[in-house]
Design a protein around this nucleic acid. Structure first.
Lengths: 245, 245
DNA sequence: CGGGATGTTGAACTTAGTCAAGAAAAGTGG
DNA sequence: CCACTTTTCTTGACTAAGTTCAACATCCCG
């Protein structure tokens, strides 16, 4: 059964076709053009409870998704048999896009907290691209952005210093949250487990714990048991060029 | 001045519009449809000599490229001021695709050895996508593949064990070369410098040297000064599922 | 045939992972 | 709402791994 996400978020990102709508607005289309999005087979799914999968590795890949409200992580089993988190997705962000042109998803997508998502079938998207060139342009831009953000993440991961990786991760997450909420938020708390962050960064949980302890002593963050709060937004928010590596 | 790459390669990948042509053949188009590719503004560039840039970070991003013959690397300066290699591209592979929808390139693309490339302007590609839906489909598939390969590289990079990273890197490179040459090659030699590989993997050159030494003792590779030769193709060529992490 | 770039080797040092035990939350069920 | 179990996180001591520094060998290019 599908219920609705909290009212405030409903106002901000709430239309059932939020994903495509935002895409189209970016593409500079007028209301008439946007109307035809109603024909696309997008639909809202949820709520997913914490730990509930949206899709699993091996499922036939048919749609991308946008987080409408909540937080989703993707993870996969590596060849050695360990699990590794491959991404975190917050309100308004796409996931599953990496499955375009693949037969099946290569990772699980799992809700971290109570979440709603908007499903965007690949074939609907594709036909919409053919109909409306501006949408195609916007979709290509989106895919390019995906490639770039993946590259940034890879660059971050290759940095041998764990401290740098962790700080960069916090920084980029902070920036995403500021972009999302549109204001300078200080009391933002990360919803994901520390183990997930450690797993994402390829760092041992113990070491992450120690580094966070140091960052707390330095006054940059406050270290809760289940989450992290940003304190020194000056240092964390510095220029986007610093966010990589 | 533009001369032509070696004759054998000319036969295999030689048409001036090789990139799009291959794309279209994959898309299942007939010769008539492929004919119209001639209208796209693709052109062959080269030869670039070793260390000569194809584009630089900050240049306005207008085209993707396909390596027609040779090897190209991409690299960028990180926030800390070190240089890091972000990718290697061999004959038939795309690079610069990550700049789609961006104002400028974010990395340098540099020839590693004498190379020819085929330029594919973004706007030509985009209008071709609008004209021929099958091309659009194929381009989306290509971008999806780019995202996935970036994800695989990131996963590899996050593996804490340097040995695993190095072996995975060799393995995936070996598989790419087999795919490229279409036969089981044993005497394949990697064209890039060891320092480049170390830099790409985020490992010190010294450590890479030691690991390669061990791999040579184990009979997996032969370790030349400027390059690496694959010996134990059995172990290196194992199932594609092993190539990540 | 130099001279600069590239690669190798060894030793000391630094960093991060592992193991094990304990503390703090969060979920669970009465 | 409270006690109990489970999960998640922290802390400390130890160990393994990789970096750094320095010296040397080798190769390639002009």
């Amino acid at each position: 059964m599908v219920t609705r996400p909290p009212a405030e978020l409903e106002r901000r990102h709430g239309c059932p076709h939020c994903a495509l709508r935002r895409l189209l607005v970016c593409a500079g289309l007028d209301d008439d053009a946007i109307e035809c999005v109603g024909n696309a087979n997008t639909r809202r799914l949820g709520p997913f409870r914490a730990k509930e999968p949206i899709y699993r590795a091996g499922d036939p890949a048919r749609s991308a998704y946008v987080v409408q409200y909540g937080v989703v992580k993707s993870e996969r089993v590596t060849a050695d048999g360990d699990v590794r988190v491959t991404g975190f997705y917050m309100t308004g962000e796409f996931f599953g896009v990496d499955a375009i042109g693949a037969a099946t998803y290569s990772s699980d997508a799992v809700a971290i907290e109570r979440s709603w998502v908007c499903e965007v079938p690949f074939d609907s998207l594709e036909s919409l691209c053919i109909t409306v060139p501006a949408v195609q342009h916007e979709v290509l831009r989106l895919l390019g952005e995906q490639i770039r953000s993946g590259e940034r993440a890879g660059l971050l991961a290759r940095n041998p210093k764990a401290d740098t990786k962790i700080l960069s991760f916090l920084r980029s997450l902070y920036q995403r949250m500021v972009r999302l909420w549109g204001r300078d938020v200080r009391d933002v708390r990360l919803p994901m487990r520390k183990t997930d962050i450690a797993c994402y960064l390829g760092v041992s949980p113990e070491h992450l714990s120690r580094v966070l302890h140091d960052l707390e002593k330095a006054g940059l963050v406050r270290n809760y048991n289940r989450s992290i709060e940003f304190l020194d937004t000056e240092t964390l928010g510095v220029a986007a060029s610093d966010q990589m590596d």
